[in-house]
Structure formats: structure tokens, C-alpha cells
Design a binder for these strands. Structure first.
Length: 909
RNA sequence: GCCUUGGUGGUGAAAUGGUAGACACGAGGGACUUAAAAUCCCUUGGACAGAAAUGUCCGUGCGGGUUCGAUUCCCGCCCGAGGCACCA
């Protein structure tokens, strides 16, 4: 009987589906373990082999954890709202829902072929009203909450209103509040709500006709589509993520994420501790607050700079400078974001005509306006210290402003001295101090004299939450007499209306303005929709209780599953989804809806799988193709060739002729009778003919081979090109396992007792697999497996005592063949419910080993031996010590004691 | 510019202070076969010596250092990948 993966795989896939083998139930007996994949956006192109990499890893881990006695929650769903479906709809008139449904079906079909152990009963789709009801619900909760900085948590807005009414709050007295109109009250509350409407500079993408969040823009271009983005002041819905900046930063410390990812988030949050100082500026002696991290350099201030967008610009521009300033503002405004970035090095600016007074020296310094100062960070105004800040330095050089060094002995003739080191000079009371001391002393001084205060700033901005698009969650907000008002909770979801055209209206309104009767109780509903990250921010909670129509997740359910123990996905979400989700979760935590303040305890970033393209070389002006090794002898053009007609870089010449009509009469210049193709690593894409479809691999090798191969390719976190070259190796490995059970038609498995050698092979594998899976080192596990199987084959070992546990060990990696063999071994239940075999020390360790090695006097050698000490490890250590003794002489006898499970102890005489 | 990574055979890679290259691919040779596929066995980092078993030297991006011993730890460079980038 041969290994027939086709029938085995379809048999077990339908068995699992029918028997609901992977259905997770809330079971407080077993410890829970929640394994989550980042759910995919179902694009029209379907899955390529790169997509399942992380899914396979998480599936192996899930299956392993089940064997280890955990109650595993392992769900899957679709991030189904998004731009591509909508753009397709604009082009074709086809409703995004139709294409999305079709794409989801295709994804599901592809996923099913790989044999994942998902609990499909828990599937979620973000575009499903039953799902986005809870996205809208969370939004309304945010609308109904404010951030209480004293309690450092979100609270219901009713608390804030009560404060306004009784004692007043934050500079608004109770009487002022009572006198305010409904509209004024609404405007005041907007300044506090977690989800609020406010005017800010936003990333506006004219081509897409929508605003974008910071993480959706890269290098001044939209991430989706790559269209130019400009800064524009607009009123938009926003989430007060910045209120959580500090907690988002501190929370990172206790997470088991990679350092690089945590670092990315830290940089994105961008905490900086400094001081705000007031300078009196202009004729009116207007107090202008600046932010600096280097108050110690205040004696070196020679000018001030305002951001062009700052409100102070108008006020501080003198009549005689008005024309020049206006011209400059116009110049800045015309620039696109991309141009600004491209021209970062060029220095521009204009003098306002006004002067500010340095509060410490009383000196008058000119106030300039320049785009190198950002309106959105700090106060939009800075004090410039050209001697000790490279940007100020460049500006001073360009406009001939004075440069005053205040650190002893530094040379500022060519560049500024930015380092925080040295001894202060020209700095009044700070003279003679070391910079670090001076920073603290200057902060104290400024605070004591009432000139300013310590301040922590964050780079993290509030998230712009509205998009002028159709295919997203509608806002449960209507405008009653112009006041944004929440649709009551019991009226959720506010369903996306049917429209027939998906473009913005002629008047420039979002597509929802086209909907008939888009109103609530006669009042107009909000026409923007929510951004992509809305639906993905709490989906991991919804999986816990996906059919609940009363709550996002039941309290008791969430207190069982708590949070995600293992999350696997790409780094591309570092500053988007992974920040928003953490924010969203912390908000729900504040309100008591979830019981953990961090959603994802451990996070693994799988690497990207790139494509490996193949090339043929056409001799210019002919239809003759020359093999790779000979191409330098001719003048050739490189042409991408479909990798499906290339095997191991050898071109299938007949298939090539049939591939394209223009190649039908192609001729070849061969080397050794073969046509060798060139290759390169590129992004996997249709246009480069290098897309590998997992279905094809499943059809020709089977899902088990695909799973093993993707893991065998290298470390999970590393990016690597897909290369089918090595796939035969893992396929052979599975066949070898099969042959331990069958010699053609003959069943080989016997009940004979295993010998020590065979047991040692098995138990070494158990130890290795356990250790490696826990560290996500799947490629080395598979290597260990291959060695074990080769050993058993060589020993002709087909004993049940060995093979039964072997099948269990195999099942996380190659579940289909494992199930089949498990059944053939006579088991009625599935291998999923088996128990991970115990690692038994007695087969690998001789109880205790004492070795004597000679030394000379003072040597302190230590050998780090693995916890699972076996004889080999001990011998290895002893060899090492013998090596050492060669160098140090043999005068003194040293006793080396090896204890099972623990290190080597060296006793010196 | 700053942060984070990584650099080992023809290829994917293993080894985190102790025999570098496990395991796998590819390549070469052989067995079985009418033949092919499949399967199995041998060789496979480089150089040199030898008829051969085998031996010697070199070798983990480059240059130093610590150590009896370094792919591994430390210092300084070079190159690649990813992220951030006028954040005061």
C-alpha cells in the first residue's frame, strides 16, 4: 500500500469538518490557550504560498498544545471591509459585498485544503452587520466616555457632565456650564470624548477622495494605491489614542514580543521629556510657550521659530513683513506632503518682524517662521539654539543668525555640537556644570521662577477615524439640529445602506450621501464610514463569543479565555493594527468589559515569503533563447518566464513554446542538452509570473508536504524566497514514515518489545520536539524527525511501542497522514485527542556519571549542558575538559560530577 | 542620520563558549530495472600530500581583543534587510 495523500487528506478534512473535531468549548477543567492568526483581507487574487506560513506555524502550535492537555481556541475570520473591493466596485459597478463574498469563499476553499484545525463555528467577517454592530457599539462607548487624567482611565461622560454641573472642571465653572446652549455643551464635551469630532490637519488623498491615518501614509503616498497625500485642515472623527500614549508605552514592557517590534512601537509613540517655557513676544508681550528637551541651552538661544500653521503667525507678523510672510505661507501651503519630505534638506523660512524676550537673559531674539517646525508637535513654536542643534544650525547659517556656543571648548565653525556632554559656559548660573546636571538644574530653575514647567510630549497622534468611503462601518451618529448625537444602543447596528454608485457625489460628499433616506428619526446620519482598523481592533474578543447578540463578549466567557496567548502575523501591522488594538482593549478594560489590559501576550512575526522569478534570455532581434551559462556571449534581453514551466531552473521547452503564441517557434541554445534559467528574488506577483499557489502544491504533493516544507524552509521569523527545490526532501520523509508501517501491501507493525537503542531514538525525538516547538524552531524539529526516521528505517524498527508515539509527535506537523496511521494502528478516536508522549529519562541517562579529569590549580571550567542530559552530552563535556587539561597540566585531580537534569560540578583539589 | 536585525558550502540552513557545516536540496558515481519512474548505497567547504586507509593546513563579511578554546562574548569597520525620519 502506497502513501496516497490525495485520498487520505480529503478523507480527514471531511472527517474533521463533520465531527467538529476542533470545536472549542468553554471548559474550565483544562487550562485555556488562545492561538490567533492575523485574519486576512480576502483579496481577489486568492492566497499564495506566502500567506499560510504563519497559519501553518500557529496550527502546529495549536495542535501541539491540544496534545499537551490545553483547551485551545483557534479561530479564523476575514477582515472584509476595505478599499480594493470598493475600487473594484467603482470600476465595474459590482457591489463590494458580492466580490467580498466570492473572495471569502475562495479563501475558505484554499484554507480548507491545508488542513487547519480552526473552529469554523466561530468565523467572523467584519462586514457582517452582526459583527459590526459591536464595532459601532465600541465606538459609541468611546463617544460616551472621556479620559480622566487623575484616575488615568476612561470613564463615562456622565461623570464629566456631573462635574461640570456641580463643581465645574478644567477651567469651566458650573455657572458657565449651566448657561451654555446645547450646541455649546456639545462642543465642550467634544474636547473630552474618547471618540470625538474635531478639526485638525489631516492626510487628505484627493485621488482616493478620503482622509487617511498616519500609518496609512508612507513617504507622502497612500499605502493603498500609492497616490499623493496632502495636509489639509478638516473636521473629522478621531479617537483620543494620545490619552493612552503613556500606558501604551509602559504596557510594552510586560509583553513577550520581539524587541524590534516593541522598539518600533516605542518610536511611534515617541515619548520625550522636556520643559515648556514662556517667552514674551511682540509688541503686546504675548506669552508664547515653547517646548524643549534642552532647557540647559537656553542661554544659547539666538532666535525663535514658529510653525507656518501656528495661530501665532498672524498675530506676530508686523505690517512691514506681512507681504513676505504671506508669500511664504502660500509657498508652504502649495507643497504636497511628498515634496516636503523630498526637500527636507533645503532650508526655508521668513522673518516675522517681531522679537521675543528670553526669560532667563532678558535678551531680545528675532522670531522667524519656518516649515521645519511642525504645528502638530509640542506647541508649534521653538527656541532655537544653533550652536547645539543641527537643524537650528542649518537655519542660522542660511539666514546669517548668530551662533553662540555654551559648552566649553566645542567647535561650532562647521557644525553644531548636539551631544549631551561637556561643561557649560556663557550660561549664567549654569556655568561650570556638566550638561546632565545642567539639564536638571535648569528645569528646576524654570519651574521655581514660574517661567515654565516640566512636560512630557508624545509623538503619537489621535487616530483619524472617518473615511469618505462606502465599504466600511457606518457611524451610529446622527445630527440633531447640527449636534452630533448617538443612535441608541438598542437600535444597533446601523446597517450600511444599498447604493448603486460608489463614487463620491458631485458635491464632493462621501458615497453614503447617495443613499435614499439616510436618516435617523428624520435627522441626517453621518455619511463617513469607519476606517479599516475599526473592525480589526476587537475581533479577537468577538471570537470568544461570536454568536452573542447581547454583548460583544459575555463577561463570564471573557474571564475564561481572557486574552490571546499567542498571536502570529506580519510586522507590517506594528504601528497600525497592533497599536489600535491595544488602545481599544485598554479602553474596554477601563470600562470593565474585558479583564486583561493587554490583548496579545506573545507575538511572533513570521517573515515574508518572496517570490523566486525565473528568466529566459532572448538574443536581441531573434526568437532564439540562450541558456543562462552562455548568455554573456550574446546580446540578450531578460524575459520573465512562468515558473510553472520551470523545474529546478531547467526550462520545459515544449511547455515554453505552448505558453505564448510568440514563442511557438522559439529556438534554444542549450548547455549540456538543457536550458538553464536565470533567477532572482522578487515580490510574489502575477506580473512576474512567480506566484505559487498552495492549491497546486497540495494537488501535486499534498497538504502535509506543504506544511512541512513551509516550516522546513528556515526560521519562522526570517523572510525568504519561495523555492520549490527542496520540497522533494520532505515529501520523501513522509513516504519513509509510511514505509515503516507498510512494505507494499504488507502491514509491518508488530507488538514486539522495543530495545534500548530504539527507545533512545524515540525519546531523543520527544525531548527535541518539545524543546523546539516551545521556541518556534520548527525547522530543527523536522530535521530531528528526519534523523529519527532514518535511524528507525536503518534498524528496521516497525514496533508499535515506537510507532504509536511517533505518530502523535508527527500529528501537529502532518496531521492528515498522522490521523490515517493512527486509525490503522487501531484507534477509533482522532489523534487530536491523544496525549503528547512523555519524555522518559531512563532511556537517555545513566543514573549519574562521575568523571575525573586532571587539572592544574586554578582553572575554572564550566560546561553548559542541556537540561535533558544524555550520555552524549556528558561525553561532550568531558572531552572539552580533557582538552582543557592538556593546556593546564595533569598535576591535580579534579572530580567532575554529573547529575541528571543538572550541570557539571567541578571540585578542585 | 537614528533604531532594530542579519552576514556560515553550489542552495535552504544547523550549531549561542567545546569535533563548524547537523538535516535537506542540488550535483557526481553506483545498485536494482529491457528501460524509465520509484527506492537504496557511496562521495560532495577549499587547498595540499598519498596507490590507499589516511594525514596536514586554511575556512563562519573584514580588522583587532578576551579565552586553554570564539560562528558564538567584547571593541572598531564593511555590506544587506526592515522601521523611523525636520518630533526641538
Amino acid at each position: 500500500m502506497e502513501y496516497d495523500f490525495k485520498s487520505i487528506e480529503s478523507k480527514w478534512q471531511s472527517y474533521w469538518a463533520q465531527k467538529q473535531t476542533f470545536k472549542a468549548v468553554k471548559d474550565s477543567e483544562k487550562p485555556k490557550f488562545y492561538v490567533l492568526d492575523m485574519f486576512p483581507y480576502p483579496s481577489g487574487a486568492g492566497l499564495h504560498v506566502g500567506h499560510p506560513l504563519g497559519y501553518i506555524a500557529s496550527d502546529i502550535f495549536s495542535r501541539y498544545k491540544r496534545l499537551k492537555g490545553f483547551n485551545v481556541l483557534h479561530p479564523m475570520g476575514y477582515d472584509a471591509f476595505g478599499l480594493p473591493a470598493e475600487q473594484y466596485a467603482i470600476q465595474t459597478g459590482q457591489h463590494p459585498e458580492v466580490t467580498t463574498t466570492k473572495n471569502i469563499a475562495r479563501y475558505r476553499e484554499q484554507l480548507d485544503k491545508i488542513g487547519f484545525s480552526y473552529d469554523w463555528d466561530r468565523e467572523v467577517k467584519t462586514c457582517d452587520p452582526a459583527f459590526y454592530k459591536w464595532t459601532q457599539w465600541a465606538f459609541l462607548k468611546m463617544f460616551d466616555s472621556w479620559y480622566d487624567t487623575d484616575a488615568d482611565k476612561a470613564r463615562p461622560i456622565s461623570d464629566l457632565i456631573a462635574r461640570f454641573e456641580t463643581t465645574g472642571y478644567d477651567g469651566i465653572s458650573a455657572s458657565a456650564w449651566k448657561e451654555a446652549s446645547a450646541k455649546e455643551k456639545s462642543d465642550i464635551l467634544m474636547n473630552y470624548r474618547i471618540a470625538y469630532q474635531g478639526e485638525t490637519a489631516v492626510n487628505w488623498c484627493p485621488k482616493l477622495g478620503t482622509v487617511l491615518a498616519n500609518d496609512e501614509v508612507k513617504d507622502g503616498l497612500s499605502l493603498r494605491g500609492g497616490y499623493p497625500v496632502e495636509q489639509k485642515k478638516m473636521t473629522q472623527w478621531q479617537l483620543r489614542v494620545s490619552a493612552y500614549a503613556s500606558r501604551l508605552l509602559d504596557g510594552l514592557d510586560k509583553l513577550d514580543w520581539t524587541d524590534s517590534l516593541k522598539e518600533m512601537q516605542r518610536n511611534w509613540i515617541g515619548k520625550s521629556q522636556g520643559t515648556e517655557v514662556q517667552f514674551l513676544c511682540g509688541e503686546q508681550k504675548k506669552a508664547v510657550t515653547i517646548f524643549t528637551t534642552r532647557v540647559d541651552t537656553i542661554f544659547g538661544v539666538t532666535f525663535m521659530v514658529l510653525a507656518p500653521e501656528s495661530e501665532l503667525v498672524d498675530e506676530l507678523t508686523t505690517a512691514e513683513n506681512r507681504a513676505a510672510v504671506d508669500e511664504y505661507l502660500l509657498y508652504v501651503k502649495k507643497k504636497t506632503e511628498r515634496e516636503r519630505i523630498a526637500e527636507t534638506k533645503s532650508v526655508t523660512g521668513v522673518f516675522s518682524g517681531s522679537y521675543g524676550i528670553n526669560p532667563l537673559t532678558g535678551e531680545k531674539v528675532p522670531i522667524w517662521i519656518s516649515e521645519y517646525v511642525l504645528a502638530g508637535y509640542g506647541t508649534g513654536a521653538i527656541m532655537a539654539v544653533p550652536a547645539h542643534d543641527s537643524r537650528d544650525y542649518a537655519f542660522a547659517k542660511k539666514f546669517n543668525l548668530p551662533i553662540v556656543p555654551i559648552i566649553e571648548g566645542c567647535d561650532v565653525s562647521e557644525q553644531s555640537f548636539d551631544a549631551k556632554e561637556g561643561i557649560m559656559c556663557n550660561s549664567g548660573f549654569l556655568d561650570g556644570m556638566d550638561v546632565k546636571t545642567a539639564i536638571e538644574r535648569a528645569k528646576d530653575y524654570v519651574e521655581q521662577k514660574g517661567l515654565g514647567r516640566r512636560k512630557t510630549n508624545f509623538r503619537l497622534r489621535d487616530a483619524i477615524f472617518s473615511r469618505q468611503r462606502y465599504w466600511g462601518e457606518p457611524f451610529p451618529i446622527y445630527y440633531k439640529d447640527g449636534i452630533p448625537t448617538a443612535v441608541p444602543f438598542d437600535k444597533l447596528p446601523v446597517e450600511l445602506p444599498q447604493i448603486s454608485e460608489f463614487k463620491p457625489t458631485e458635491a464632493g460628499e462621501p458615497p453614503l450621501a447617495r443613499a435614499k433616506d439616510w436618516t435617523y428619526e428624520g435627522y441626517p446620519l453621518e455619511t463617513s464610514t469607519m476606517p479599516g482598523f475599526a473592525g480589526s481592533s476587537a475581533y479577537y474578543l468577538r471570537y470568544m463569543d461570536p454568536h452573542n447578540s447581547e454583548a460583544l463578549v459575555d463577561k463570564e466567557v471573557v474571564s475564561y479565555w481572557r486574552n490571546v496567548d499567542l498571536y502570529i502575523g506580519g510586522t507590517e501591522h506594528a504601528t497600525g493594527h497592533l497599536i489600535y488594538s491595544r488602545f481599544w482593549n485598554k479602553f474596554l478594560y477601563d470600562l470593565g468589559y474585558v479583564c486583561e489590559d493587554e490583548p496579545f501576550r506573545k507575538l511572533i512575526n513570521q517573515g515574508m515569503i518572496q517570490g523566486r522569478s525565473n528568466f529566459v534570455y532572448r538574443i536581441v532581434g531573434t526568437n532564439k533563447f540562450v541558456s543562462f551559462g552562455l548568455k554573456d556571449q550574446y546580446d540578450t534581453t531578460e524575459i520573465h518566464v512562468d515558473i510553472n514551466i520551470v523545474r529546478n531552473d531547467r526550462l520545459d521547452m515544449e511547455a515554453f513554446k505552448a505558453w505564448r503564441p510568440e514563442f511557438a517557434d522559439a529556438e534554444f541554445v542549450l548547455e549540456n542538452g538543457e536550458y538553464i534559467c536565470g533567477w532572482a528574488v522578487e515580490k510574489m506577483s502575477k506580473s512576474m509570473f512567480n506566484v505559487v499557489n498552495p492549491d497546486d502544491i497540495c494537488a501535486s504533493y499534498g497538504a502535509d508536504t506543504l506544511r512541512l516544507y513551509e516550516m522546513f524552509l528556515g526560521p519562522l521569523e526570517q523572510s525568504k524566497p519561495w523555492d520549490t527545490k527542496g520540497i522533494d526532501g520532505v515529501n520523501r520523509f513522509l513516504k519513509k514514515i509510511w514505509r515503516l508501517f507498510y512494505d507494499r501491501e504488507k502491514w509491518l507493525v508488530s507488538d514486539e518489545k522495543a530495545n534500548a537503542q530504539e527507545l533512545k531514538t524515540l525519546h531523543r525525538l520527544i525531548g527535541k520536539e518539545q524543546e523546539d516547538i516551545e521556541t518556534f524552531s520548527f525547522n530543527t524539529t523536522i530535521s530531528a524527525f528526519m534523523i529519527a526516521v532514518n535511524d528507525l528505517t536503518a534498524m528496521k524498527c516497525s514496533k508499535r511501542e515506537i510507532l504509536e508515539p511517533l505518530v502523535v509527535l508527527l500529528s501537529p506537523f502532518a496531521p492528515h497522514i498522522a490521523e490515517e496511521l493512527w486509525q490503522r494502528l487501531g484507534h477509533e478516536d482522532t489523534v487530536t485527542y491523544a496525549t503528547f508522549p512523555e519524555y522518559e529519562e531512563k532511556y537517555t541517562v545513566e543514573d549519574s556519571c562521575t568523571y575525573a579529569v586532571s587539572f592544574n590549580g586554578k582553572t575554572r571550567f564550566t560546561a553548559d549542558l542541556p537540561k535533558s542530559l544524555d550520555k552524549d552530552a556528558v561525553e561532550k563535556a568531558v572531552r572539552a575538559m580533557e582538552q582543557t587539561s592538556k593546556y593546564v597540566g595533569e598535576q591535580n585531580i579534579v572530580k567532575v560530577i554529573v547529575v541528571p537534569g543538572k550541570i557539571v560540578n567541578i571540585v578542585l583539589k
